[in-house]
Design a protein around this nucleic acid. Sequence first.
DNA 1: TGATCATATCTGCCAAAGCGAATATAGTCT
DNA 2: AGACTATATTCGCTTTGGCAGATATGATCA
Lengths: 114, 114
Amino acid sequence: MNEQFFFESLSDETRRRILVLILKHEELCVCELFQALDVPQPKVSRHLAVLREAVVLAQRREGLWVYYRINPLLPTWAYRTLEQMVQGCGDLELFLSDSKRLDEMPNRPVRCCA
Amino acid sequence: MNEQFFFESLSDETRRRILVLILKHEELCVCELFQALDVPQPKVSRHLAVLREAVVLAQRREGLWVYYRINPLLPTWAYRTLEQMVQGCGDLELFLSDSKRLDEMPNRPVRCCA
DNA sequence: TGATCATATCTGCCAAAGCGAATATAGTCT
DNA sequence: AGACTATATTCGCTTTGGCAGATATGATCA
């Protein structure tokens, strides 16, 4: 666990939006994320790559879909930091509308064995 | 409290070193900080300015010296985030040697009414 | 094998952030 | 006022980081 990468990964708003959504929903796939955030897919993929390289997120492939979740090996202090971030950001307008778009999204992929 | 500025302020290692020292010691002046970190004084002043503008630190002048402490108005979630940061970074070699240099520093300014 | 869908990476560009060195400001003391 | 000390800011430069748009990869199914 490299704290430099960890804190850098929190310094971007798009990445915080991704993390908050995943913390609220356990596990989400790329198509859910970029539609909830309403940003281009390559943009979300790049930020997911940053979060993967920082070992903050883990990924899992299921057919065509790739699901992202918080890395279960994240140290306790780092996980608690993420929880505090949700406290600080989760109720802001921008983050709430992400959740709303996700809830209203049609054709969300169905996990067969999540 | 702007979370963008808050998380950006944590994304730099020098600023984390400053924050960890201050969290461990309540209040420190600029000369203690730049000597403990063993970096040029203007560098520490620039980073302190970033932390001030992010409203993470508050300052207090006492004669020639300027003392910095955690902004007492910091929201709870942000303060807890800082505490988790100390958990994650405080025991790393780099941060420990900062503390050591501070302890061994001669002529530390004496607070008359801290 | 070729078509299709989901995701990832690359390219070229621009803006922001960090640095060292020099300089400015602000307070204190004689 | 002038000298001195502590701290802050500016300047010129280089590096890094983010973006959009285009393209590549990888899995699935006909």
